[in-house]
Amino acid sequence: MNRRNSGGSAPGTQGALLAAALFAASIGWAEDLQTGRVTGHVTVRAKDGAASANRRRSAYDSVRLRRARRFDYQNPGEIVVHLEALAAVPQAAPPPVPGGETPTTLRLVRAARGLRWHPSSSVVSVGTLVEFVNEDSKPHIVYSKSSTDAFQYYLDELDSQGASRSVRIKAIGPVEIQVLDAEGVQGMLYVAGRHHQVLSGSAEFELPRVPAGPYRITAWHPRLPVDTRIITVTNGASTHVALDLSVNHLPKVSPDQDSP
């Protein structure tokens, strides 16, 4: 089980004492807020019977079938759990970063298999500054069209090696970053609420110091149905939520009458 928590921007490197003092001041202000914590569990599991369905030795007996990759429910990749305030809940200001804000960087690099984004996926808090850097020798046109249509934006061309553009992501949801002049070069950003945690597979989660109020809690994976609940965080209390990213919750369809 691997877990990564985030409560805002990464701390800078200048002046550890100054940073500590500023952080302490920030926490002091935050302590004035009424907060609770949100805990729970995310379940990722295959459909009942799926594991045994193709277990026959002869099932994958052709070359094409043997090459088939099976979805790994034990290690499905990053799952994001995050909160989205449903009302104007007062939030503690993120601790100030000495030396200014450090953006999250996605680099466009030319590797042995061609152009690609590094990292290919990243989870950021809403409002984060994201920088796109062109490390290829050719200019490229970078843009994004949100798959949820939550927002849509375009970026200028990165017209020389090392050129960069930055954008502040303002809406929550998945964002696929595209290169207009090249096919199949997708990068993925998941823009989460400020209180979020990244899991890898079924796991417990804990979101501490959440200001009291109503929230939408979401568990997201790019290839699984999202699970969303409405919760209310109360001061000094712990709210427990069980989230399930299984296919089982989708509307069922009956077999065709002409099927055997």
């Binding site: 799926a50 296919v247 089982n248 989708l250 069922k252 369809v253 002409d258």
Partner: peptide, 11 residues
């Protein structure tokens, strides 16, 4: 969700 089904079946 069409559920699990085998060769020759259709939904």
């Amino acid at each position: 969700d069409l559920g699990l089904y085998s060769k020759g079946e259709s939904k």
